[in-house]
């Protein structure tokens, strides 16, 4: 199968191309707050290096969150535009599951991604990468007792996990988005992707102004 994969849920901005189920090329960088300007350039660079053709794709895989609200929208909006041009399906890929797919451990573990203030996105996985909980967002004080004795693979949670002796830093990658999309293509593929929305999870507070 041929798949284009996009990861913009965190500070990593990446795009990868899989041809006949194997990765042909990837453009990926840590570039906070520059995803909107960079993603199209990465796509062009990838296209030049790999010769990918949109009309031969089986779909575009997108990291759907949880993660940065703006980052998720940049990736999904760009993917929807590309997909619309050639009536391609989109394969929505859960961000935390894609991160977990790169973990090799003989024990269950948690994936943690920093959200804001003391809020953290998290999900529990078994050693064979089955989801043991739903992706959720919690306050650090509520999450702490749940993860104390298990391995943690995290993004930007350093300050919270300072004293945790089984904490490992990870980075998401478009490579994992693509490989997971290939595995679950039949289950996840969305032929009419217009109405797909990122998995925001985190509620946001609306202050009603009173001036």
């Amino acid at each position: 199968m041929n798949i284009l994969a996009i990861e913009t849920a965190t500070e990593v901005c990446g795009i990868a191309y899989y041809e006949n189920d194997s990765i042909k090329g990837i453009e990926e960088k840590i570039i906070p707050r520059q995803h909107a300007a960079s993603l199209p350039l990465f796509y062009k660079a990838l296209q030049e290096k790999t010769g990918l053709l949109l009309n031969t794709l089986d779909g575009i895989a997108v990291s759907m969150g949880p993660g940065s609200f703006t980052g998720l929208r940049i990736g999904l909006s760009y993917a929807k535009g590309l997909a619309f041009s050639h009536d391609l399906p989109i394969i929505p890929v859960p961000t935390l599951q894609a991160i977990a797919s790169d973990v090799h451990l003989d024990d269950e573990f948690h994936v943690l991604v920093f959200s804001h203030r003391d809020m953290i996105y998290h999900q529990k996985f078994s050693a064979d990468l089955q989801q043991k909980s739903n992706a959720a967002v919690s306050k650090w004080s509520d999450l702490k007792p749940l993860i104390e004795n298990s391995a943690c693979f995290h993004i930007k949670c350093d300050t919270f996990l300072e004293d945790h002796d089984r904490a490992h830093k990870v980075q998401p990658s478009a490579k994992n988005i693509g490989s997971l999309a290939l595995t679950y293509y039949a289950d996840w593929v969305e032929e009419k992707p217009y109405a797909l929305v990122p998995n925001y999870i985190a509620p946001f507070e609306i202050k009603i102004p009173n001036d």
């Binding site: 909107a36 993603l39 949109l54 760009y78 929807k80 535009g81 590309l82 997909a83």
Partner: peptide, 19 residues
């Protein structure tokens, strides 16, 4: 609004590149 503009610009870029 930054986030609002981004949604339009990113979709438009994707479509322009695709076409």
């Amino acid at each position: 609004l930054a986030g609002a503009l981004l949604a339009g610009v990113c979709f438009a870029k994707g479509l322009a590149h695709g076409l």
